[in-house]
């Protein structure tokens, strides 16, 4: 106890607490600089893997591009990213986008793949969810994903319970986890309309470019 007098005054308390905070803050800032690139890379890598899982026929690691469009979702205009996958020659093999919606426990984020003729889906990957383990998290299993391959999105995706789907736009909800299954279907339905509209515009632009050649 070198300075008992200073330590026990208000000034001393303020000094100790604020210097602790400053030191800890500085260390954290430095460490964040160190790892932020890696964290961002992880995020991109995950996104890339999801894109490759839902679009078939992408032929090289860099064979996709991001189309950012300002799209109105829920009354707010936001930049919305659509991914276009292509083969070595640059021909489009499919599109994908990220859909979000409230699940049973919290937000579910998923990557949705569209075929070149965007009437049917080409795949689905859930990228973020904390649904009930063993029940709701079955929406991340291959058995659930496979139902979305070739699923018709017109007029809208529907789900049925405890029986086999009969129509081209129906999936079977996971037994005991209807809410999670419904969340996925709703999120896709909500986003797909704006995506389809955006793709139409994009195609129109593309065809104009091609006509010039």
């Amino acid at each position: 106890m070198k300075e008992p007098s200073l330590k026990d005054t208000s000034l001393g308390m303020m000094l100790v607490l604020s210097s602790t905070a400053i030191i800890v803050g500085a260390v954290l800032a430095g460490f964040f600089q160190l790892v932020s690139a890696k964290i961002e890379a992880n995020r991109l890598e995950e996104e890339r893997r999801a894109i490759f899982a839902v679009i078939e026929g992408i032929e090289c690691d860099e064979c996709y591009e991001v189309i950012t469009k300002d799209i109105e979702v829920d009354g707010k205009v936001k930049p919305f990213r659509i991914f276009r996958g292509h083969d070595m020659e640059g021909n489009t093999v499919g599109y994908s986008f990220i859909a979000e919606g409230p699940g049973f426990s919290a937000k579910i984020r998923m990557m949705v793949g569209l075929n070149v003729v965007p009437d049917t889906l080409s795949g689905l990957r859930v990228v973020e969810q904390i649904e009930t383990p063993g029940l709701g998290d079955k929406i991340t299993k291959e058995k659930f994903y496979s139902q979305f391959k070739g699923l018709s999105v017109k007029p809208e995706i529907e789900y049925v319970k405890n029986r086999k789907p009969e129509k081209a736009n129906q999936i079977q909800a996971v037994t005991g986890a209807t809410i999670s299954s419904r969340a996925v279907v709703n999120a896709i339905n909500k986003n797909i309309k704006v995506v389809l509209k955006a793709l139409e515009e994009e195609e129109f632009k593309q065809s104009q470019i091609e006509e010039k050649f």
């Binding site: 330590k7 026990d8 001393g12 308390m13 100790v16 607490l17 602790t20 905070a21 800890v24 803050g25 260390v27 954290l28 460490f31 964040f32 790892v35 890696k38 964290i39 992880n42 995020r43 995950e46």
Partner: peptide, 30 residues
């Protein structure tokens, strides 16, 4: 550390290390 502010000081220290661990896990074991 003065007695009166020891708990906030400890919490700041603990929170700092927790954030370090959290960032480390995010970077290495996403």
């Amino acid at each position: 550390v003065p007695r009166q502010v020891r708990i906030p000081t400890y919490i700041v220290i603990i929170a700092g290390f927790v954030t370090l661990a959290d960032l480390f896990l995010k970077a290495q074991f996403p």
